[in-house]
């Protein structure tokens, strides 16, 4: 199963991933990213959308 890895040195908390895949990524009250590394297979499409849309390309999928 694939897991999500966000490179925190790149992530700039733009929150575009949370718009694309709200079931996996969210922004907390301080405007900082929180996410689940594992996700339901049915969400793969939206996770890939989140990867594409991240302005700094900080999101990766690992096997």
């Amino acid at each position: 199963m694939k897991t999500i890895d966000v490179d925190r040195t790149l992530c700039d908390n733009h929150g575009q991933c949370a718009i694309a895949a709200p079931d996996v990524f969210r922004m907390n009250a301080d405007g900082e990213l929180e996410y689940e590394a594992t996700f339901d297979d049915a969400l793969l499409d939206v996770v890939e959308e989140a990867i594409d849309v991240c302005p700094v390309q900080a999101i990766f999928l690992k096997d």
């Binding site: 908390n13 733009h14 929150g15 575009q16 718009i19 405007g31 302005p55």
Partner: peptide
């Protein structure tokens, strides 16, 4: 390019 939810 701005930033946050309205990022370009």
């Amino acid at each position: 390019f701005g930033g946050g939810v309205h990022h370009c």
